[in-house]
């Protein structure tokens, strides 16, 4: 199976950019106004100058709520191969956009994508899966106006519904790049919403040789627990020397990403850098037995209880920091 996936990936990659796909409508003020209102951006210059916010770039080529699968699109094609192999679920892990210039009212935009890379199989907190990376470029005529590197994890969902990944419970908001995703109600929304949850002035951990594996894990969508290379003892927070056997060879495992709230705080005062208050911060006892502190995202404080079951989520603050966080399971 791995061979089949790799061969398909190589074939799609070698085919280069897919066909250009034009936007449904030209860049237009009504959509710009809707977007500014939804985002809460009150900057008057967009309407005054008749230009679109750069972050809207992807909007112009979205396919709407009922997209038709386009087999020639490289990401669609690669997703179909992975779906066949059982890696049916998807979560966007990162997305970097570059804007070359503002788009103006009335301009017609089209986008072309190509497959860059398919890596796997990887064991993650969500399940085993493959990271699929594509590059997309938006054009006005022959002029490139914006580009994007987009990476998704296509993973095999765990069997029981109790461990459904957070992304599958998210409301369906389209990742335009992944038509199959929309039909599965999983999408890049996990990343986009999370990025808004914690601003980049959040406090950052001191990362040392002893703790780097943990933060590399969160960046890759994995919740890692230190495991002693000598006796197998699990430990969090991690440290360089095992307290049980004294070994200084440390390994880790990828946690299932589930746990129970052992205690929690509703923080209201004073301000916390990077957060809009109140926030719920919990001490979670993981299924594997260790405890970990993390924010409970999207929860009404009144719903949170000691003993409630939670599922890990990842908040990508920026390229350097991804925080582990939690969501209440129903």
């Amino acid at each position: 199976m791995e061979g089949t996936i790799r061969a398909a990936a190589e074939r799609i990659r070698a085919a280069g950019a897919g066909p250009a796909r034009p936007g449904r409508d030209p860049v237009n003020l009504p959509m710009i106004r809707n977007w500014l209102e939804a985002i809460g951006d009150r900057n008057p210059r967009y309407e005054q100058d008749g230009v679109a916010p750069p972050a809207m770039t992807q909007v112009w080529t979205m396919r709407g709520l009922h997209p038709v699968v386009e087999p020639a699109d490289p990401l669609s094609a690669m997703s179909a191969v992975l779906d066949q192999a059982g890696f049916t679920s998807v979560v966007a892990t990162n997305c970097e956009q570059t804007y070359h210039r503002y788009l103006r009212d009335g301009e017609r935009v089209e986008v072309r994508s190509r497959l860059v890379d398919v890596r796997g199989p990887k064991r993650t907190a969500l399940g085993e899966g493959w990271f699929v990376t594509t590059d997309s470029t938006w054009y006005v005529g022959a002029e490139a106006v914006a580009s994007m590197t987009f990476r998704v994890l296509k993973f095999r969902p765990p069997g029981s519904t109790a461990t459904a990944p957070a992304s599958e419970r998210a409301p369906a908001a389209a990742s335009e790049r992944v038509p199959a995703v929309v039909s599965e109600r999983a999408s890049g929304v996990a990343f986009e919403r999370a990025a808004a949850a914690v601003a980049s002035d959040a406090l950052r951990p001191v990362v040392t040789r002893d703790t780097a594996f943990f933060w590399a894990g969160t960046a890759a969508g994995e919740l890692r627990i230190q495991r002693c290379g000598g006796c197998g003892e699990l430990r969090h927070p991690p440290g360089p020397v095992c307290r049980q056997c004294g070994a200084d060879r440390q390994d880790h495992l990828v946690a299932r990403g589930t746990g129970e709230i052992f205690s929690f705080v509703v923080h209201r005062h004073p301000p916390v850098p990077g957060r809009r208050l109140p926030i719920v911060v919990a001490l979670v006892e993981l299924t594997e037995g260790v405890r970990m502190v993390g924010e409970v995202l999207g929860a009404d404080p009144r719903q949170v209880r000691i003993g409630a079951t939670v599922q890990v989520d990842f908040v990508r603050v920026d390229t350097e920091l991804t925080l582990p966080a939690w969501r209440l399971l129903p």
Partner: peptide, 18 residues
């Protein structure tokens, strides 16, 4: 101590009261 604090400050737990 800074490393220890990295297990809760970034998660939003950063005051004595909390």
């Amino acid at each position: 101590s800074g490393v220890d604090n990295g297990w809760h400050y970034p998660m939003g737990l950063g005051t004595p009261a909390a």
